[in-house]
Design a protein around this nucleic acid. Sequence first.
DNA 1: TAACTTTGTCATCGG
DNA 2: GCCCGATGACAAAGT
Length: 464
Amino acid sequence: MAEDVDLKVCQGALDDCCPPLGQDQLELQEEEKDIYQSNSNHGDSLLSLEGYLQLLSSQVENMLEVNLLEDTQVATPSRGQDPSSSHHNINLTQTFQNSFSPPDAMLLRTDYPTQLNSKPRLLQRQEFFPQSSSDNTSSESQFHGSNLTGLFSVADLRNLTAHDDNNFDEIKLMSLALEEGFSPTEVSQIFEEPGSDSGLSLNSSHSTTSYSVCYEGSVGYSSSIKSAPLHGLGAVGGHCQEKIKHSHVEYPGVAECPTEVLQQFLHNHTYNQLPSQAASTLEHHQQMWMKKSNEVKDRCHNSTATNRSRDECRAKALRIPFSVEEIVSMSVDSFNTMLAQNQLTETQVSLLRDIRRRGKNKVAAQKCRKRKLNAILNLEEDVCNLQTQKESLKKEHSQCSKSINQIKQKLNNLYHDIFSRLRDDQGRPVNPRQYVIHCSSNGSVFIIPKHLAKSEQNQDNRKE
DNA sequence: TAACTTTGTCATCGG
DNA sequence: GCCCGATGACAAAGT
């Protein structure tokens, strides 16, 4: 019991001297630095990807300008024009044949990433935020803003938007996601994550609405044609004869597209380069695109993908031009400014808030677990130290006991030695059972009878 | 295949 | 009352 008290006192003294969490806090800071470093590395990858996109985009834009001059009809179809007319198809085919490689074509549709390197990022990005889906005009202008506008007539777009605003929102989601190389089922999976509270879930009835105009063959959904060129075809709209279907979508793949369109598209993407140069460039682009596409697809539908990856896919599908990392790490003011200055749909705002909340909470949970782990480690270390301390105190106690016994023994020996030398008035030895050695307060030493010593001791006690 | 660990998310609490 | 971080509890995926 006494040892326990001693240990507690010692532990208190130890805690006062060296608070146990001090070192841990430093370690935590280091670990957090690692996390942020890792995050920034992630951001570097994004920047390099953006650079690549910008490079390709500039090439495509140059070529597009030429094609726009040659065939404005494709770029800006008049309202009411039947986009499925043969004339349109011919122009479209020529445009594809003359200008686009599949990877570049993909870039045409995804316009915002091409300008991400601009410095005032927030302001610049606002320009690329999609307008509210309830605004037909803005939706229309957005499509016009896209370099792919020519692939669809305004009437088609109006049909889409008039059909159901929500559907149009989802169509935009699906369209963007599918452009990125996802299959319709994959996109559905992204938005049907259990537990997603962003209002993003595409129920089965929604997911079967009119997407075919955008996606037929667009993602090479047929397993036999999942190649880079088909991704590219899909990226630019994969315009086929069949128009909007308000029925269950089969995603038939390119097999239903006009054969000559496909073949011309598949066989000629040489720009105006020398054959070998064009081939190598194309091959490089295709490889790069396939790599990126596969990475994104893997991230988004792989069963092992993190939830952040799923959020990235959701954000991408909603055309939110910020990475999850940015959404989570930006300051509250920046975040609120971003929400306020961009005309976002409720879905977008909800997703942004969810992404931020989940991201913050994830980091908080990681920190919390680290703290808990460190606390456990500290307590284990404390236990270890206290056990060591206890053993040390035991040894010390044992040594003290030994010393006390030795002193007692010496005192006893001395006592008997003194009595053995003492003699009374008649020269007889003094009996130690009848007399005691008494030390008075003034330092005098007397030999007195025991009964007197007891009474004197009592008097001393009373005085005190 | 069961048991354990890791990780993300949600609900709740307190500052 | 709202916001935000901390944390327990739970589920899903990994080991």
